[in-house]
Nucleic acid binder design. Structure first.
Lengths: 207, 207, 207, 207
DNA sequence: GATGAATGAGTGTTCATTCAT
DNA sequence: CATGAATGAACACTCATTCAT
């Protein structure tokens, strides 16, 4: 009430604050289940401020989708680079590394893309979601094409398959009781998925 | 309005009519996006009738989930039986047949399970959806265990992976322009998926 | 379903059956709280039959009001006659007898007038209720005028007072724990009320 | 609509505004007959505002009950104090003064307690109403006990009787054409009621 | 610039009432 | 005739969105 009680923050910071809260609430309550009140409360700001920095509820959700999708894409891209300085690594090692990155992202940062995009796979957001998902898959296809040879277009169905498989495995892991094990989850999941798909992918390299 | 005076129908018929409309609208608009008005309008009946035959919105959605899940499960189960009279068929043939059945189901009857279950992975329905999905995956795990040996429990992560992969591939196929080809879609998709996963699965048979 | 399963009853009997059920349900659930379904169920008949024999919900409620009011009026009238053949009884004995009759009626037949008229003292039924209540009070005024002398008109405010007092006392008795006592409730209540009002009424006889 | 653009008012003012409208509409239409739309319209505000300041319909009704009951109780309590500075007044004068206060309250502020409490004697509000009514009657019993001697408990049935009588007399006065007279209504009614009950009450003082 | 207060539009749900059988 | 099946109209309640302060 006295001027100065509420801190005046830089727009970028405020925006991130709002987006973080929005991602959290959308993940927990769902697109329609989340209320702007809840998001404002979670962000610790007033509702009009949410509108000022995040726009309409739809715009806000779209922004959340975009940011989380970007995060995932950059994670994948980074992971595709050689681990250490030594550029020498085999194809399966690079793929395993990418998968580990994917699983690492979705198992640590649970309220991310994997949770968000399911909530809007239909309805007015179908298009937005689909576009974002295709972005991810396309990046995967590029990585695959680099390993397996062939064009990125040709690799797309395989990429979709792979991403779907990874999501399915993630569902299993997120689901019930985790099997006890000393392995890092991301390593375990990457190994499991590689065991199923690598022989087939390897055979596809030179038809 | 549509058909003139109000017709009197058998309860079973009406119930199916309502469920069909509900599945359609839920698939298009999502759980929260769908309004009971819209469902009633789609079914060509009045709203109270929807309540009479489908119960609460939540109950109605649960009923949709259950019906579509059952459909898919029985499709898979039927497909696991030997094609012709000859009981002699190899493991990969049986798996390919099951996959063909799955793809056939989800590509023909598009507004089905695959669309529905994604909408409710969060929120109050998480439990219901998860249970239904686990039913499907468990059936897949049983089929897999029969082929690969080992317990159904051990096969569960693989089953999740497989179902996820199939869903991902379906997304691709439902997505953009379908590649022209004379093959039946279900056959094409089953072949693609088999190419990726069978070598790996085969290697898992005897560790 | 087979013809003859449902008994065909005389219209009067049916009507009474319906009215009884309606009074019971209205008393328990209130005017708006009662549903025609509930009334039909309580009467053991189908809903259209309720409409056939009882008319609209409003008409049905009005009929209930009228019947119960009549019951009370005739109770009062009967009670005002000399108890036995001997016409010789004092004024206070006759008044006490009428009060005993009133209290007897409302304490035994609890779902009667006293419960019903309160539910509709306002709204669309205000008029109906008021008319019925005035009927009761007018009868009381006639009885009072016969005892106290003077015209029935002059006795009306006194009659209202008396009926209100009796209702208030009834509320108390129906309320919490009844004081243990061997006296019949109606006798007890009549005595209590007489103790308060008779001296005053007696003084009014000859101003 | 009524007053043009939306005004911003202090919460207390708005709350009273809403409560006033609610009491008015509940009195006219009854608990179930009143719609939140009607209350909002009567208050000249939008429906959500009614919810913001009055809560659920049930809570709103309960608040109305409570406020009107409090009003009546404080009226009675105030009236029991000596009129002028002279603390010396007889028992019948004090009782007459309390009755005058009661009649003054219910004849001036017609849409008050007397109208409200009758609407909810059955159903979910029976408890709330009964509690409130008991509060009023208990206050009356305390006043009576102070005059007549004895405990407040013992005075309760008498208090119920008295309150009922007063309500009955009020009904008569509110009812048809008022008898022309120069007396203040409250004085007239108090005198009439005193004439009927005082001799009896006086006789109860020393049994 | 940040906010409490206010609203328009829409949702799920129920009920009195009536055809068609 | 008596009924199950169907509906139109309404109601309580909520939420995304925006002024006035």
């Amino acid at each position: 009430m006295t001027s100065g009680t509420r801190r005046r923050l830089a727009p970028d910071v405020r925006r991130r604050q709002v987006l973080d809260a929005a991602v959290a609430v959308f993940s927990e309550e769902g697109l329609h289940g989340a209320s702007m009140d809840a998001i404002a409360a979670r962000a610790g700001v007033s509702k009009p401020l949410v509108y000022a920095h995040g726009g309409t509820k739809d715009e806000l959700f779209a922004a959340c989708l975009a940011r989380e999708a970007d995060r995932l894409v950059s994670t994948l891209t980074t992971a595709a680079l050689p681990d250490d300085g030594s550029g020498a690594s085999s194809a399966d090692a690079r793929l395993r590394r990418a998968l580990r990155a994917f699983f690492g992202a979705v198992t640590t940062h649970r309220q991310g893309w994997t949770v968000l995009y399911r909530q809007a796979s239909t309805g007015e957001f179908a298009g937005t979601v689909d576009a974002a998902r295709r972005g991810i898959v396309r990046r995967a296809a590029e990585l695959l094409a680099a390993e397996l040879g062939g064009s990125a277009e040709a690799a797309e169905p395989v990429a979709h398959t792979l991403v779907g498989a990874a999501e399915g495995l993630t569902d299993w892991w997120l689901g019930a009781e985790r099997p006890a094990g000393d392995q890092e989850p991301a390593d375990l999941l990457a190994d499991m998925l590689m065991a199923v798909v690598w022989p087939g992918l390897d055979a596809l390299r030179r038809p």
